[in-house]
Amino acid sequence: MTVVLGIETSCDETAAAVVDENFHVRSSIIESSIDQHRAFGGVVPELAGRAHVTTLGPVVARALDEAGLDPHHPAIDAVAVTSGPGLIGSLLVGLSAAKAYALAWGVPFVGVNHLEGHLFAPLLERSDLEWPLMTLLVSGGHSMLVLQSGPGTHQVLGETIDDAAGEAYDKVARWLGLGYPGGPVIDALAQQGDASALTLPVSMTGSDFNLSFSGLKTAVVRASARHADVALADVAASFQAAVAEQLLRKLRRALEVHEVKGVALAGGVAANSALRAGVSALADEFSLACHLPTLAMCTDNAAMIAAAGLYRFQAHGASSLELSAEPNWQLAHV
């Protein structure tokens, strides 16, 4: 049975996982340096890079141990690692270490696209996955609609033309003085607020599948400055509803145009309650299987990287040890 060690260091999570060819997760360890970044209102690349270099070794050791593997002679068939997109200084730590593990153990090494990793996440939680699948991939760095005809076969239908959805959450949270990261805190506040309190513009009404959150972020800042009497919870609810409205409208249109068997939500923003409820309702309406990731699978993790690496390795073989990090590697170019 093919077994892969996955490594993920593209942002602030340092992660390692062992996954087998049945997409069974034998171990998955995640450490985050998020606490170090809070004061700066965003992930600071130098801090993230420093954290990875001290954390990665112990994280890999734990992943091997929990999978019951010998630390010096692990029964694995490949080492998979995120080689892009992400923060260059962070990617380099995982990439360098992954090459060294592979070289030392005498096993192949596979560079994986982080976004493709997110697309493999449902395979780790569902054995009954049917294709094609429409996936809404939303995170702090990316927002896109992807049509998957099978594992590793994907078409980006549209993506954000400016900010990512998670980035808009962070910026609005910072402006409202709610700290960083913005997603969980705005989501929690929004539950107690009135989404109709602020009238926000409806953006991206065209028939394409592209997204945009920059204008919405600005509109929230303006509207809440103009209506200082509106409660914070109402601002949060109005913003959250507008984000979900745009994403769900595009998803609905994609489901009207493309015939699929299921709909999936992926990425950090997949933890958002409004989005989960909305996607679930859409899936019901279109009578489709709905794949909402567990909260653990929304976060960046190495199990999804190992899964994507497993597929890449089996379908396309190993990568060269000379592979470089690609901080701007687009999913469309995988």
Binding site: V53, V93, S96
Partner: peptide
């Protein structure tokens, strides 16, 4: 800084693996 991290990550992983 980035060079150091590449070297140290490589050396540490290599030594840990073996």
């Amino acid at each position: 800084f980035t060079g150091l991290r590449v070297g140290i990550a490589t050396a540490s992983a290599f030594a840990q693996a073996l």
